[in-house]
């Protein structure tokens, strides 16, 4: 059974449908990929999963428990952590303080001891930058700091929003290894990423989101071979136009 599931989630912004009856699951111990063109609704999906956005319809299940109406911090305490596409670091704090604060945010009664912030920085290769103010870090390093900070709450589910952008190929390769390790440790990882080489390398399962609709899923090889995906990505054959169906009532008028 999937550790994190969403069922039939629909999100509208005014009349624009950002997500349409999306259902997917993220299993423990492997990396699940979520790909799709920009504007397909990937970040919206992350916001629904973490509770920053309440869906118009559908449910979010964490380990079988319905968390759809739960505040973001409660979900985090149940073991969900994320990174952000546009960096959301605590800029006035140092890198180490960013991570240290996160280690303390996990409820004290949670089993096990707190992870060591220094070790987490080490793990993402940021030890040299421990005392740097977070807002002075370049994007690539900032992304790794966000990852360390997310790991600091000892999540069971990790949601990564374009973690490799801003990193060079060597860094990306190291990052891929780290993702593999984390999955082996039993984490359920959902990865949104544009770097297809990385996606194909680390993901055990892929979802393809297009236009707010889940258009394909499966292992990377089968997704790659799926004619609909080829069509959506390469425009080689004709298909239906999902775009014309989304016009809705003028709910923006207020």
């Amino acid at each position: 059974m999937a550790l994190l599931e969403i069922r039939d989630v629909t999100v509208r912004y005014g009349g624009h449908v950002a997500l349409r009856e999306v259902t997917l699951g993220v299993e423990a111990g492997r990396v699940t990929g979520l790909i799709g063109p920009n504007g397909a609704g990937k970040t919206t999906l992350f916001n629904v999963l973490t509770g920053l956005l309440t869906p118009g319809a559908g449910r979010v299940l964490l380990d079988g428990e319905d968390v759809t109406r739960l505040a973001p911090y409660r979900r985090a305490r149940r073991g969900m952590a994320r990174t952000f596409q546009i960096l959301e670091l605590f800029g006035q704090l140092t890198a180490l303080e960013n991570v240290a604060l996160a280690t303390r945010l996990r409820r004290r009664t949670a089993a096990g001891e707190r992870p060591d912030p220094g070790a987490l920085l080490e793990r993402v290769g940021l030890s040299a930058f421990a005392d740097r103010r977070a807002d002075t870090l370049p994007t690539g390093l900032g992304r790794r700091l966000e990852l360390a900070r997310a790991l600091a709450v000892r999540p069971r589910v990790l949601l990564l929003d374009e973690p490799a952008s801003g990193q060079d190929p060597d860094e990306t390769a190291a990052f891929a290894d780290l993702l593999g390790e984390l999955a082996d440790e039993g984490l359920a990882i959902l990865l949104v990423e544009h770097d297809m080489t990385l996606v194909m390398r680390v993901c055990a399962h892929l979802y393809v989101l297009d236009f707010g609709t889940l258009m394909a899923e499966g292992d990377p090889a089968s997704v790659r071979a799926d004619p609909r995906v080829r069509e959506a990505y390469l425009g080689t054959s004709t298909g239906t136009d999902p775009g014309t169906g989304t016009a809705g009532a003028g709910t923006l008028a207020r």
């Binding site: 912004y13 624009h16 775009g243 003028g250 923006l252």
Partner: peptide
């Protein structure tokens, strides 16, 4: 007369 945000992406 429709708010632009309520149209489809293509429109």
């Amino acid at each position: 007369r429709q708010p632009a945000g309520t149209m489809s992406g293509g429109e």
